[in-house]
């Protein structure tokens, strides 16, 4: 089987596994939510039956499963009883806001993280290197939400000057599209810094370790023997080879990124998937919580698939071997 086809097959199987897992998690394990509702309110039997239908809980488990699959395929994620609108509409807006936050912060994290990582790795054993490693380990040990709280305190209470909540200024009047974009950009600053502070450390450590490994290879000795400048040696010969393990490790980063985004969105009230998850937990709005988990998992799966494709392009050896 060609490798690409194999990957797509694995992706489809994983998607199916996620969807089925989700069904069991939210529809089978909690038991019958209608009984809970019926216990607190006096309901006639036909009302109970109606509720059961509206929750998709009538019929056998297998019937429920197939109805659930068919609803998903039609993009029907149920109805949010706390927000009083279809879950798919709510998710659509939230997903867009989260992707804005993640795109901006990922670009900063990857670029800055790799630069500092190369800086440290090419000075292996020197003071600058060990100082970078220790600093990165400290930053990596920070709880993301706490960093957010400190920034809220610093810029909201202490110094002031930067918006600490939401995605736009409430009741703002915009004279042009640029005004609007600038307002969103200002609101992006603190959430992005919070995410970046913790996640940059991750990229620094990985890039540095990978580069240190590569610098010990024979071809690096050859490069030095050829009399190449330090910069050419590090960036052209070292960094290019060090990049592959960094990419492999970024699969783990995707999960950390999602976790970080949830915390940041809660602290800064950024109206994305994380805040939606948080609010649905508080309101015990299970249809929304379920959709949040499902959509997040699917996006992460897709991102992993994408990272894998890039990896194959960059390293032909992988494509041949598997």
């Amino acid at each position: 089987m060609p490798p690409l086809l194999r990957r797509i097959l694995v992706l489809l199987v994983s998607l199916f596994a996620i969807v089925t897992f989700n069904f069991f998690l939210f529809h089978v394990i909690p038991g019958d939510p209608i009984r809970l509702i019926a216990r607190t309110q006096k309901l006639a039997p036909d009302q109970v039956e109606k509720l059961r239908q509206s929750f998709g809980l009538d019929g056998s488990l297998i019937e429920q499963y197939f109805r659930y699959l068919s609803n998903l395929l039609h993009g029907d994620l149920g109805y949010s009883f706390s927000l009083k609108e279809p879950v798919s509409d709510v998710i659509g807006r939230a997903l867009l806001n989260t992707l804005i936050l993640l795109t901006v912060s990922t670009i900063i994290v990857v670029v800055v993280g790799i630069m500092i990582g190369v800086f440290a790795g090419s000075r292996h054993g020197k003071k600058a290197d060990s100082a970078t490693v220790v600093t990165s380990l400290i930053f990596w040990s920070l709880p993301t939400f706490w960093v957010g709280m400190l920034l809220v305190f610093t810029f909201g209470v202490w110094i002031g000057g930067l918006p600490i909540s939401g995605i736009t200024t409430p009741n703002a009047v915009y004279h042009s599209g640029i005004d609007y974009v600038m307002d969103v950009a200002r609101h992006l600053i603190l959430p992005t810094i919070t995410l970046a502070i913790v996640d940059i450390a991750f990229f620094i450590i990985i890039t540095r370790t990978s580069l240190v490994d590569v610098m010990g290879e024979d071809y690096m000795l050859t490069a030095r023997g050829k009399g190449l400048t330090r910069r050419t040696m590090v960036w052209k010969h070292g960094f290019r080879n060090a990049l592959l393990p960094v990419l492999t490790a970024s699969v783990l980063y995707i999960s950390a990124l999602v976790a970080g985004a949830i915390q940041v969105e809660v602290v800064f009230s950024w109206p994305g998937m994380g805040l939606l998850t948080y609010n649905s937990v508080l309101a015990r709005d299970y249809p929304v919580l379920e959709a949040c988990f499902l959509v997040t998992a699917i996006v992460v799966l897709a991102a992993n698939f994408g990272a894998d494709l890039v990896y194959r392009r960059l390293d032909p050896r992988v494509a041949v071997n598997t």
């Binding site: 998850t277 299970y286 997040t296």
Partner: peptide, 19 residues
């Protein structure tokens, strides 16, 4: 591998909210 790619925090939140 399934549990490696499933985003851990959202899953923890879902499980804790359910159980």
């Amino acid at each position: 591998d399934f549990f490696l790619v499933v985003p851990a925090l959202p899953l923890m939140i879902a499980l804790a909210a359910i159980f």
